[in-house]
């Protein structure tokens, strides 16, 4: 039977919600972040994004070929994975490392489980985790945005020894916790810098405004529900506030935590991945709150400056449990009880 003939009882309202529509929407939502990446990190950023996309697509095509499965490139999910992976990479990463990350994302993160819809973990984050574990040094070497002079003090607090290698707001935050001079480092000027993106960090995470625009687009288009982003941001804010209220000298203001690092990218684009997030509304709240809280725990207490990747992977792992916990009861009570 051809696809365009649908037999169903009235009312006949139909909406073309297919996987590739959703994925294209996500891609459109990511355009501002990609533009910001291109603006701040210049040509190399665009080369990295293209590399990740191309190698993701090629890997998916090859995996399908080897497993003798129908071609699944049409759903654009490989492109989205590639873009998200690229946006979460440091801007100075060598091309070959980006290729390894993309291949790993698609092959181990997705295709091994049986392709889109069967994967447990967010493929892009799987690839990034592998890169972090393998090339720890490269994955934490940050370059300064091209728009500012790298010798300007704005990018790095005076007490920083190696501004070039640790110049992310979260890197300062870790040092501030140790030296207890958070209040000195984080002022309005810094906050402004994290909003527009004139700070060090991964390709797509520096500019909070670009990410917010993209996120709003997705919310308006109803590609994503507001539950997960809100839960992530709210729980992170609450956790950050508690830390800040306990010791304002050591911990930075909670708003900073939202605008810096991968928090917004995660809240709108990574945690909302329909495959690896829970299905029910209650589940989404739990999932989002878990992501936000674990991220903040790692940022404030843990050894790493950023915790978005690990928190998403950890919560992905418990997603099936959350889904089981939040089963919806059919109208009229449980069947068979």
């Amino acid at each position: 039977m051809p696809d365009n003939i649908t037999v169903s009882p009235a009312p006949h309202i139909s909406e073309p919600v297919w996987t590739h529509r959703v994925m294209i929407d996500v891609l459109i939502g990511l355009v501002p972040a990609m533009a910001a990446a291109g603006y701040y990190f210049r040509l190399y950023a665009l080369i990295l994004i293209c590399t990740c996309v191309i190698s993701s697509v090629v890997t998916e095509w090859l995996c399908n070929l080897i497993c003798k499965k129908p071609n699944s490139l049409g759903d654009f999910s490989a492109v989205v994975t590639g873009v998200i992976l690229a946006l979460s990479l440091p801007p100075g990463l060598p091309i070959w490392a980006a290729v390894i990350g993309s291949v790993f994302s698609i092959a181990i993160g997705k295709m091994v489980f049986g392709g889109l819809g069967s994967n447990i973990f967010n493929p892009a984050m799987v690839g990034r985790a592998f890169l972090t574990a393998s090339f720890g040094m490269m994955m934490t070497t940050w370059t300064v945005p091209a728009t500012i002079d790298s010798t300007m003090p704005r990018i790095a607090p005076e007490n920083m020894l190696h501004a070039r290698t640790q110049a992310t707001p979260l890197g300062w935050s870790k040092i501030a916790i140790k030296d207890r001079n958070g209040a000195k480092i984080f002022n309005d000027e810094q906050f402004e810098a994290t909003l527009i993106g004139e700070v060090g960090g991964c390709l797509g995470e520096t500019s909070a405004i670009a990410l917010l625009i993209g996120g709003l687009y997705l919310l308006i288009r109803r590609t994503i529900n507001f539950h997960i982003p809100l839960a992530v941001l709210l729980s992170a804010f609450v956790f950050g506030s508690i830390a800040y209220l306990i010791d304002p000298d050591a911990y930075m203001q909670p708003v900073f935590h939202l605008t810096s690092g991968g928090m917004l990218l995660c809240a709108f684009f990574i945690a909302t991945d329909p495959v690896t997030a829970p299905l029910t509304r209650r589940g989404m709240w739990i999932f989002g709150a878990g992501v936000g809280t674990i991220t903040m725990l790692i940022r404030i207490v843990g050894a790493y400056p950023e915790g978005v990747m690990f928190s998403v992977l950890l919560m992905n792992a418990v997603t099936p449990l959350i889904d089981r916990l939040c089963k919806r009861v059919p109208a009229g009570g449980k069947p068979g009880v």
Partner: peptide
């Protein structure tokens, strides 16, 4: 964790601070 290992400072191995 970063910087120069002068005086009584020891530079930690990256990824193996513990």
């Amino acid at each position: 964790k970063s910087g120069e290992a002068r005086d009584n400072k020891i530079l930690a191995i990256s990824g193996a601070t513990i």
